[in-house]
Amino acid sequence: MSGLKDAGHLFRFAGLFVLAFLVFLVVRAYVVPKSFGEYGHYRGAAIGEIAAHPVKFAGRQTCETCHTDIADIKAKGAHAHVNCEACHGALAAHADDPMSVTPVKPDSAVLCARCHTASAAKPASFPQVDPAEHSGGAPCVTCHNPHSPIIGSDFTANAAKGGAK
């Protein structure tokens, strides 16, 4: 028994550890959200909260219900695979109330350069230019129809009318 008595201080130190561990467990139970780990390493309730956010994108099909003329041009052009809202931005508000929410026309000199500025990382087959050298700062829609951008296609004549109506 005297051995235990002589090691008493070690039990006190061990007791501190146990106490610290218990405090950790209590704090953990308090601060970790209840739904944490429900589906994975995140707060399960976050899914419902995110789903409750208002929808911002209308989707291509919604745009094409009204803008049939543009959809026809685009379907035959090089941008057929590009979604409307990739260039025009999220427009669910416009789709819900087309009369009072009118989208702003994108600045083609900035927008087109985002994808078509020359870069060694892009495939050689992808159309790319040095914008300053190529157009001298003029908006791309001066010559290109953004919905069917290859010059010489049937729709180039519409170039000036360019964006969403």
Partner: peptide
């Protein structure tokens, strides 16, 4: 820091 123990006997 002594955690209430003052046992500094030889065995301890």
């Amino acid at each position: 820091m002594a955690l209430g123990s003052s046992n500094i006997g030889e065995r301890s």
